[in-house]
C-alpha cells in the first residue's frame, strides 16, 4: 500500500490533478492509477474526476496499522499494535503475548475485527460482531498496591466515558462498577485480568459497541445494549479508527495518573461520570441485601450509603448487584387545619 500517496492526498483540501501528483511524488501516471485502485480495494474512498483529478474522501473503517498510528502521540499506549482479523478473544491473545515474551512492551494493544469467544466478567460471553465495534486489549505492566487494583477498571471506564462525551458528544455515564452506559444502555464493557504467575502485569479488555444497529445485537441484548451509532442523531455510523485514536489518547492520560498514583484525582474524575449520588439503591454485600441512598462512590473505597441517618461505606470488593429502587415514601403527617 502506498502510504506516501495516502499521506499526500490527506494534505490536499480539494481535488489534485494527476499531473501534480506525478510531479510531487515522482511516480508515473500508471503507478498512480494502480496505487489508487489498490487503495480503493483496501476500502479507501477516493474520487476520480476527469478534469479535477484525485480526492481522498475518507479512510476505510478498517483496523489498519498506519491509520491507527497516524497522529498517535502517545508514549506508551498503542506504541505496539497487534492487529488481527479474528481471534477467540483479544484478552487471551494478550496473555499469549505476555507469557511468550518477558520484554513485551507496556501499553501493547491487541485488536481484532471480530472475536469468536469474547470475554465478559463472570465468564459471560461478550458479543463481538465483526467490524461493528472496537474489541481490544491493552497490556499494562505496572505494580499496583493491592487495595488500588480496582482503579485499573475505573481508569478504563473513565477514559471511555470521557472520550465519548468530549469527542463524540454523547451523554456517557459510568454505571457501577465499570460499565459505560448511554441513556441507560450498555455501550462498553471492561474486563481486567491478572495471572498469579505473571506479577505486576494486567490485561485490560475493552469492548466498545460502535456501529451495531438494533438487529445486530442478539435478542437477549437488544433492550440492554446499545452502540454509538444508535445513540447518535440520525444513527450515523462512525469510522472506528476515528474512535480508536482518541480512545488510545485518553487511555494514555488515565494510565499516566495511575502510574503516578494520583488516586484522588482519578477517583474524583471517575465519580463525576457516575451519576448515582442521591439515588436510592439496593445492593448485595456478602450475601446480605442492604438499602440506602448513595452519598458518594469511589472506585476502590466503594459505595457510601446513607441508611437511617448514618453513613455506611461498603468496600468495592464486597459490593455487588447494585440496583436503583423506589425511595421509601416519606410519612405524611396529617395536619389539622381549622377553617
Amino acid at each position: 500500500m502506498n502510504t506516501d500517496l495516502i499521506s499526500f492526498l490527506k494534505k490536499q483540501s480539494h481535488y489534485i490533478p494527476v499531473g501534480d501528483i506525478e510531479e510531487k511524488l515522482k511516480i508515473s501516471r500508471d503507478a498512480i492509477f494502480n496505487d489508487v485502485e489498490a487503495l480503493i480495494e483496501q476500502g479507501y474512498s477516493i474520487e476520480f474526476h476527469p478534469y479535477l483529478g484525485v480526492k481522498l474522501i475518507d479512510i476505510p473503517d478498517r483496523l489498519l496499522k498506519h491509520e491507527i498510528r497516524e497522529d498517535l502521540n502517545t508514549k506508551i499506549i498503542g506504541r505496539k499494535l497487534s492487529i488481527h482479523d479474528q481471534l477467540s478473544s483479544t484478552n487471551e491473545t494478550a496473555w499469549e503475548l505476555v507469557e511468550a515474551d518477558d520484554d513485551l512492551k507496556d501499553g501493547t494493544v491487541i485488536l481484532a475485527e471480530s472475536q469468536t469467544r469474547g470475554r465478559g466478567r463472570m465468564g459471560r460471553d461478550w458479543h463481538s460482531a465483526p467490524g461493528l465495534g472496537l474489541w481490544m486489549s491493552v497490556v499494562l505492566k505496572v505494580a499496583m498496591p493491592p487495595d488500588k487494583v480496582a482503579f485499573l477498571t475505573g481508569m478504563a471506564s473513565l477514559a471511555v466515558a470521557n472520550m465519548l462525551q468530549q469527542f463524540i458528544h454523547l451523554p456517557a455515564e459510568i454505571k457501577w462498577p465499570n460499565d459505560v452506559i448511554i441513556r441507560g444502555r450498555k455501550v462498553c464493557g471492561i474486563l481486567v485480568e491478572a495471572r498469579s504467575n505473571v506479577p505486576d502485569t494486567f490485561v485490560l479488555g475493552i469492548g466498545l459497541n460502535v456501529n451495531q444497529s438494533r438487529n445486530d445485537f442478539p435478542e437477549s441484548l437488544r433492550e440492554t445494549a446499545t452502540s454509538l451509532r444508535l445513540e447518535r442523531p440520525g444513527s450515523r455510523a462512525l469510522n472506528r479508527v476515528r474512535v480508536l485514536r482518541p480512545l488510545l489518547f485518553y487511555l494514555e492520560r488515565v494510565y499516566d495518573l495511575v502510574r503516578k498514583k494520583k488516586w484522588d484525582k482519578l477517583a474524583k474524575a471517575w465519580s463525576e461520570f457516575v451519576h448515582m449520588g442521591g439515588k436510592h439503591v439496593r445492593l448485595s454485600r456478602a450475601g446480605e441485601e442492604i438499602e440506602g441512598t448513595i452519598v458518594r462512590v469511589h472506585p476502590s473505597d466503594g459505595i457510601t450509603l446513607r441508611i437511617d441517618e448514618k453513613e455506611v461505606t461498603i468496600g468495592a470488593e464486597s459490593v455487588s448487584n447494585v440496583r436503583e429502587i423506589q425511595p421509601p415514601k416519606p410519612e405524611t403527617k396529617a395536619t389539622e387545619s381549622h377553617g
Binding site: 488500588k148 480496582a150 485499573l152 485480568e193 491478572a194 498469579s196 468495592a316 470488593e317
Partner: peptide, 21 residues
C-alpha cells in the same frame, strides 16, 4: 503442573487466574 490454572480469585473487580505453582 506449576503452569496449570486451578481457579479464579476475583479481587476488586480484577479477575485473577491462579496457577498451581
Amino acid at each position: 503442573t506449576p503452569e496449570s490454572a486451578v481457579c479464579i480469585v476475583e479481587a476488586m473487580k480484577v479477575f485473577n487466574e491462579i496457577k498451581a505453582e
